[in-house]
Amino acid sequence: MPEARSPMASFAQSVHNIIDGPVTWFRESIVEPNQTKQAWYHQRFRRVPTIDQCYTDDAVCRFEADQQFRRDRMVENEIVSILRQRFEDCILYEAPDHMRKCKSILEQYEKAAENWFIKYGDLGAYANAKTAYMKQKHRLIWERRHGPVGSGMKSQEELASPATEEE
């Protein structure tokens, strides 16, 4: 047998239907069907031209390149941070034998940290796309003249004569 409702409950239900009904209908029939479903948890920005593709007097292009640089830096900071956290968790979880079991994670972290430092190291907190580009240019010039960074400088004989292959 249906339960009898008090007049106050009936009044509250009718007020709820008057207020919530149009809102629910609008959301279910208009908003939700027109939403684009994304599998990502963050906003995806389109890639913009890099600083080397901008004209020197194009302030908007330089601004967009700086914003892209800052977003890329934040993403790469998080990647390095996540890899570091994975390594630390592995060490805690695999306590006595962690060096053997966590070696691959450590190698991934060290490679990511090295690549991060090559790109962003020594730039400071207020770096922009132009300073990072200049750092990359100077590194490439150094490697052309002296070999890979960290391998020491070439001797005068190596600089004077081009490398020849021995057969």
Rank of each mutant, 00 (worst) to 15 (best):
F26H: 15
F117C: 04
R47N: 14
C102N: 04
Q38E: 14
A160C: 04
W116N: 01
D52I: 03
F69A: 01
Y109P: 00
E143R: 03
V75N: 09
R84A: 06
E114M: 03
E28P: 08
Q35N: 06
N34V: 05
R62T: 08
Q67R: 14
D58E: 00
A132Y: 00
N128Y: 04
A125V: 06
S29E: 13
A160L: 12
G124E: 01
S161P: 02
R46V: 06
D52N: 08
N115G: 00
R86I: 04
M153A: 09
W142F: 14
I79Y: 03
I79T: 05
Y41A: 06
E165R: 14
F11L: 10
L123K: 02
R84I: 01
Q108V: 02
H42L: 04
K154Q: 07
A39T: 08
R145L: 10
V75Y: 11
S6E: 14
R46K: 10
F11V: 13
E107M: 07
Q38K: 12
Q68L: 06
A160S: 06
K137W: 10
M8I: 13
G121C: 04
N34E: 07
Q136T: 13
D72M: 02
F117Y: 08
C61E: 00
A112M: 01
E166N: 08
P33A: 13
H16D: 15
V48I: 07
W40N: 12
M153Y: 15
P2R: 08
L92H: 15
M1A: 14
A95T: 07
I141F: 15
C61M: 03
S155W: 05
D97W: 01
W25E: 15
M8N: 11
H146P: 01
Q68D: 14
K137D: 09
A95L: 07
I141Y: 12
T50V: 13
D97I: 04
Q108E: 05
E107R: 10
Q67S: 07
N34K: 10
I105Q: 02
L92G: 15
Y41G: 09
W40T: 13
R144I: 08
V80H: 00
N77L: 05
P96D: 11
P162G: 03
E76P: 00
C90H: 03
W40C: 09
N115P: 01
S161K: 06
P162R: 03
A39K: 05
C90K: 00
Q43G: 04
S104P: 03
T131R: 12
A65K: 02
P7L: 07
P33C: 07
A95Q: 10
E94Y: 07
Y41K: 07
R71A: 00
Y41W: 05
N128S: 08
Y93G: 09
K135R: 12
F117A: 05
V48Y: 03
Q13G: 14
F87G: 00
P148S: 11
E166L: 13
